[in-house]
Design a protein around this nucleic acid. Structure first.
Length: 448
RNA sequence: GACCCUAUGGUCUAGCGGUUAGGACACCACCCUUUCACGGUGGUAGCCCGGGUUCGAUUCCCGGUAGGGUCGCCA
């Protein structure tokens, strides 16, 4: 039988980066083995679940490219799903849980207590045969020693996580439960439940957690815990996916930047590390830069235009050729797309602000006559192309007896307002003679 | 408090009894370069501690310490 794995998030309104990795590892295992990846929404807690919250999860998985073989097609719990083991929303499976509780009750494996139903848990240690952690013998804690039984149906009739999770996994015929290590201790309860239902256990693989850079638990409040964060900051899904794979897993041959197809090829459960990993934003940024540099032109333009639009800059107000030429000077020079509007905003702004530090350094009295000379050279250059402008600048520098850099810096600041940016000669060409000369002219009033 | 998992440079990792402990990110220096970035070269930095086992432990065992997880009518 082909493996059947599932990602079973609770719609809380955001997709945790650790949850995203759990989904990814499930997806990778399914693709590696030719099995099925199932998405199940654990929305038993009606009070805090909403359709929008489900939307966040669906969108997150879609953004990452983790398409599911079975599960919801929309965020509507009563809406259409694909797969024949549905419903895939727990809120729609009440009847299944009720039947299962009845069965346990009638066989004396559960009992009513203060209006709730509790499962009779065994006191003997339970061994979890975990594909990642190995054999784990789980003994009762002191509190469980006092009362090992646990609630499976609340007094208001709502089923509890442990029950629904197990019922769904067995009814959906899940073969491998790949989930966060935070569930390892709970697994004993789940195993007892599976046995009570008289069915074969799924294989378990508990993957380590992702921690904050300081080693503490990454919770909703932490910056960087939400996947939406990376989407918002203009990361590329392929970079995030690649990075997530490297947290707790490695191909063991020193490769780090890997295409998804390569990862699918060599991914497997036993090679997953057993210890938690800290999230290294800098390394993610590095991968992001790697992927951003080799983006296909069309996708690059699309993402760039979108980034500008989000920053309130409508690049469509400019000629398409101008926009493309401008963006071409930026490709490979920034990492996340959220940097772009600041990096290249001068192409699309009427008024430019001068960087304070740069102005102090470059808009000094002795530079004014130099910049005037440069302006004249640009004005009389035979063409306004990068190569011509470079020649003009270098000849001007030579005539003035200074290094090229002495002209380059004030010129860049005058034209872009920034001390760093795209190749100067190329950006001058893109901006065009009129804007360049006007901006240089305007900068003169700023010289000390 | 009890139970469970884990421990290689700052971070992610390779290693599975004998290695000059390898790679990547970050950092530093230099080169390239009009800036920034990229690229190139070199460098700083590591086996948590204590006992065993062994001719020999980063590697195996035990203990400690530290970090993480779980013990809920949350999931």
């Amino acid at each position: 039988m082909k493996p059947r794995v599932r990602f079973a998030p609770s719609p809380t309104g955001y997709l945790h980066i650790g949850g995203a990795r759990t989904a990814l590892f499930n997806w990778l295992y399914a693709r590696h083995t030719g099995g099925a990846f199932i998405l199940r929404i654990e929305d038993t807690d009606a009070a805090r679940n909403s359709q929008e919250a489900v939307e966040v999860i669906l969108n997150g998985l879609r953004w990452l490219g983790l398409h599911w073989d079975e599960g919801p097609l929309t965020a509507d719990a009563t809406g259409p799903c694909k797969g024949d083991r549905g419903p895939y929303f727990q809120s729609q499976r009440k009847e299944n849980y009720r039947r299962r509780v009845e069965a346990l009750l009638s066989r004396g494996l559960a009992y009513e207590h203060e209006g709730a139903v509790k499962f009779k848990m065994q006191r003997e240690p339970i061994t979890v045969h975990d594909l990642v952690a190995g054999d784990v013998v789980r003994k009762l804690t002191d509190r469980e020693e006092a009362d090992p039984d646990f609630v499976i149906l609340r007094s208001d009739g709502q089923p509890v996580f442990h029950l629904v999770n197990v019922v769904d996994d067995l009814e959906m015929e899940i073969t491998h439960v790949i989930r966060g290590e935070d569930h390892l201790s709970n697994t004993a309860k789940h195993i007892a439940l599976f046995q009570a239902f008289g069915v074969k256990l799924p294989h378990y693989a508990h993957i380590p957690l992702i921690l904050n850079p300081d080693g503490t638990k990454m919770s909703k409040r932490d910056k960087g815990a939400s996947l939406a964060n990376y989407v918002h900051d203009g990361f590329l899904p392929e970079a995030v996916v690649n990075y997530l794979c490297l947290l707790g897993w490695s191909p063991k041959d020193n490769r780090e930047k890997l295409a998804l197809a390569e990862i699918v090829e060599c991914f497997d459960l036993p090679q997953i590390l057993r210890h938690n990993a800290r999230f290294d934003y800098e390394k993610l940024l590095w991968l992001q830069g790697e992927y951003a540099r080799e983006l296909a032109d069309d996708r690059f333009y699309e993402l760039a235009v979108h980034a500008f639009a989000k920053a309130g800059v409508n690049t469509n107000a400019f000629p398409l050729a101008y926009v493309k030429a401008a963006l071409d000077t930026c490709k490979g020079k920034f990492k996340t797309f959220s940097e772009l509007p600041v990096y290249a905003g001068f192409y699309f702004a009427d008024q430019i602000e001068y960087d304070a530090e740069g102005a102090k350094m470059d808009f000094v009295p002795e530079n004014k006559p130099r910049l005037e000379k440069l302006r004249d050279a640009f004005a009389t250059a035979p063409t306004f192309e990068a190569a011509t402008l470079e020649t003009a600048l270098k000849e001007t520098a030579k005539a003035l007896g200074v290094k090229a850099g002495v002209l380059v810096h004030p010129c860049r600041l005058a034209v872009t307002g920034k001390p760093a940016g795209p190749s100067l000669y190329h950006l001058l060409e893109v901006l065009g003679k009129e804007k360049v000369l006007a901006r240089i002219e305007r900068s003169f009033e700023r010289f000390a």
